[in-house]
Each structure stands twice: as structure tokens, then as C-alpha cells.
Design a protein around this nucleic acid. Structure first.
Lengths: 253, 253
DNA sequence: ATCCGGCACGTTGTATACATTTTTGCCATA
DNA sequence: TATGGCAAAAATGTATACAACGTGCCGGAT
């Protein structure tokens, strides 16, 4: 390799760096949706050899960020608003399945306790009258934890696996729109509603009501659809949304 | 390369051959669940170089057939009965989502006609009093076509994409247990019930009843669960099930 | 006998040379 | 001007050499 090689690495392999670097480039919009990615260009940009680049291209394609085209090559994917809506709907459906299974099969007391604890911490965050970035980040971490606990409660590796695949798409994760809420007026109300749903969900699991739990999760996911709409109509918030450059707007970028 | 190189290829790349070859080896049970796969061993077995082997390992891992382990390496995955059940449940859930979307958004007349035509052909196959392998293969092809038409009717690329990921797992596809039905007594009845559900599904789509269409597809997928149980209790059928060596039985292979 | 260091080997990670395929752009021809 | 085809350039596909990393074995010291 050249003398330009960065030797700062702690433990990351070249392949990991290629994946992280390329994901970053794509999500930040360094490449536009529809752009063709060539290995050699990425070799130059990232300072890595073709082998890890190829592995990363394959990885990001399976994540859904890139698209393999025939006969050969990769494109940066773009996402229409309706595709993002559908991705969120798929996520809500899988989470609904997780909730149904959890309710049907029963959730262990320790797991229920973990969920209640998690919600208590979120309640505490939401008592503050206005949220700074730090509080929002804490909400995001706890929110993610709650959704992980739900998957754990489902007791199904297959459901976890299905969820992990759905969530690799930008905008599809339960946390996708949390961090930009600071830029949206009324965000506290939105988060309080989400948290009320969280409580209802645990109630449903506790009473083993799959018929309540499943639609609750579907509806819970639809918050993200509303948030997407808000963000799309708010230029300042859009600037802070990770992956925003990949969104294809009707009649424009 | 060695003189042993097979030059029969039409258009398959080495990478394609590695993927097909490895998938075949795994599904046929040449490697047992839990076996570690080393690149060099596969190089010897398949007569390819490490580069396409590595790509194939990555691909089969994302398909769910292999499992990447730390610090480094790949294992052949095994599937418990309950994992297969859950995989089928996930598939039914995604198909249910597809059906709901199709009903809500409305299915075009040409697509409805295609579905009706497809079902008419299946009806014809099922009028024969007993099914040979050829008839069963035809049923399988038409069944697959029907399920593809449903995805098409959903009008959602995201749902198609989610389904394509679910279906890569062995046993999860709508056709997984069709081809072994020849070995199971009463298979004609099973297929007739499935076909009755097909008709109900199209009826529901036609009247745009998402509330009917979604649960119909979930229940339809559960046929596969029943078939799995039948096959697991029938040694002869099990021998003809693709991927059977990967099934972990309680207290045995 | 046990613990520990270090060497040898097997495996994966990475870079790169070479082969093959695909794209591109030019030029001749209609 | 449109078109066909050919050659050059660029890209990907493939093989392989070498590096880095573990892991286990063996021998020596306590």
C-alpha cells in the first residue's frame, strides 16, 4: 500500500472500514441516488484495496443501500416517499408479529420487569418540559432498548433475524426519526404519545392479549410515517436526517 | 487453473458456480449442521479459487444457510422444528401484508385476470384423481406463479424485497413442501384445500376486503406447517425433502 | 507435574497481477 | 445523418502471493 495508509486503526479490519466508509459516503450524499459506483473510484476515495471494497459492495447491497445491476455493477439506491412508507409498514408488521408471539407464548417476569424499567426511564426523560439533544439521544437509546426487548420477548430467532434485515434500510428503524425531532415543533407531544403506546404494549403482553399487542405495534410504527411527513415538510429538519439525500422527492431531487 | 477445470460452462461465472455448488453441498447434507467450513476445503471440493468461494460464503450467510462466527469462520446452520415453524409464520405474515396492501390499494383487472387464469390451470391439474411427479411439478410451478402474482398485486417493491429475503431460507418458500407430497398419503386433499384458499384469496382481493385477505394468507401459509409435521413423521418423504439434513430433531440428528 | 513461552502450522485478511468482459468512441460506409 | 463494427479503454472477474492472526503443541524451567 501507499504511504497514505492510515495506521490509526484500533481493531477494525479493512473490510469493516470499507463498509463504514461507504455507508457514510452514501448516507451523506457524497454519491447521488442512481450514481454508478466503480471499485476503482472507491479504492481511490477510501484508500483501500479492491478486495475489501468488493466485500463492502456486496454487504451494502444486501442491506438495500445499493442495487446490483446487470450485467455488472452497482448503483446507489434512491427511495421514494411511498417506498419509505412501505418499509415502515413492513417493520411494523414484523414487530406486530413479535408482539403477537410474545403475547401468545408468554413473556417471562424478568423480561417484563426489564421492559417496565426501560419505560420508567423514558417517563423520567419526558418529564422535562423541553428536550435538548442530550435528552433526545437518551430517549433514542432507551427506545431502541425497548424495541430490542420486544424482539427478545418474542422468543423467536427467526423473527429477530427478519427484523434485523428490515432495519438495515435507512428510515426503517424504530429510531430513524427520533434524532431529528429537536428540529420539529411539538416533538415532545409526539414522543409522549409514543411512550403511551409503549405502556399499552407492555400491558397487552402482560395480559397475554395478542389481539391487542399486534395492532398496537403496527400503529406504533405508523408514528414514524407521520414523522417522515413532518420532516419532509421541514427543510431544517431534513438537513439533519441521516440518509436524506437518498430520498427521491416528487418533481425534484 | 488445473486441467480438471470444467469447461462446460455456458455463461455461469465462477462465483455463481461457487454459490450453486456450495448451496447444493449444504442442502444435500454433504456438510452437517454445525460443521465449520474452511475456504481451502471448499477450494479443493469445488475446484475454484478462494475469491469466488469467499463471495459465496458471504452470500449463503445472508441467505441464512450459513452462520458467521467469531473471531472468524463460517458454520453450517441447523434448523430446529420450531425455527422452521417460525420462518413459515414470518412468510405468512409478509404474504398477509402483501394481501392487505393489494386489497386496500386495489388490484388491476389484468392482474386479477392473471390470478384467475392461474387458478383455473391449478383446478385442471387437481381434477386428475391421482398425481404423478409431473402433475406435482406443474402444481408447484403454478403455485409459485400465484404467489408471485400476489406480490405483484401488492404494488410494493419493499414487500417484494422483504419476501425475497424471507424465502431464501430453506423450508420457508410457498413451494417448500409441494414436491414431497407425492410421498405423503392424502396429498391430493391437502392440495385441494390449498387451492380452495387460493380462490378465497382472489375473492377477497376482488371485493377489496383487506380484513379477509390478510388472515387468509396467514392461514394459507400454515398449511406448510402441517405439511412439515407430516413430512417429519414420514421417513420416506423426509428423504426427498431438499435440505432435510439441516433439520435438528429433538434428541437425534 | 505444571506452568509458561515461543515456534510451527493452519486459516483468514489483504493486495495485486492477470484474464475477461463491457463500455465507449471513432471511423468508415450507406 | 444514421449505423455498424472495430479497437482502445475501463471495469469487473479470477487467481494467487504474501501478511496477519490464532491456536495448539512442545520443550524447558520451576
Amino acid at each position: 500500500m501507499r504511504a497514505t495508509t492510515i495506521r490509526l486503526r484500533r481493531d477494525a479490519s479493512q473490510t469493516d472500514r470499507a463498509i463504514l466508509g461507504m455507508r457514510d459516503l452514501v448516507l451523506r450524499g457524497e454519491f447521488k441516488a442512481g450514481d454508478r459506483l466503480t471499485e476503482l473510484a472507491l479504492v481511490e476515495t477510501l484508500g483501500l484495496s479492491r478486495t475489501p471494497i468488493r466485500a463492502a459492495l456486496q454487504q451494502l447491497t444486501q442491506e438495500g443501500l445499493l442495487e446490483a445491476v446487470q450485467p455488472t455493477g452497482y448503483l446507489v439506491r434512491g427511495f421514494s416517499e411511498s417506498e419509505i412508507f412501505d418499509a415502515i409498514e413492513v417493520r411494523g408488521t414484523i414487530e406486530g408479529l413479535a408482539a403477537r408471539m410474545a403475547a401468545e407464548r408468554g413473556v417471562s417476569q424478568p423480561t417484563l420487569r426489564d421492559m417496565r424499567d426501560c419505560l420508567a426511564k423514558i417517563d423520567e426523560v419526558l418529564t422535562r418540559s423541553n428536550l435538548g439533544d442530550g435528552q433526545l439521544a437518551r430517549f433514542g437509546a432507551l427506545n431502541e432498548q425497548f424495541h430490542h426487548l420486544l424482539l427478545h420477548a418474542s422468543g423467536s430467532e427467526m423473527v429477530k433475524h427478519a427484523m434485523s434485515r428490515v432495519v438495515t434500510l435507512p428510515f426503517a428503524s424504530p429510531n430513524a426519526f427520533v434524532l431529528v425531532q429537536a428540529k420539529i415543533p411539538g416533538s415532545l407531544e409526539i414522543l409522549k404519545i409514543a411512550q403511551a403506546q409503549h405502556h399499552d404494549i407492555v400491558d397487552a403482553l402482560e395480559e397475554r392479549s395478542s389481539a391487542r399487542a399486534e395492532p398496537l405495534l403496527r400503529e406504533h410504527a405508523r408514528n414514524a410515517r407521520k414523522n417522515l411527513e413532518l420532516v419532509l415538510r421541514n427543510t431544517d429538519a431534513l438537513r439533519h436526517l441521516v440518509g436524506a439525500p437518498l430520498i427521491r422527492r416528487r418533481g425534484g431531487t
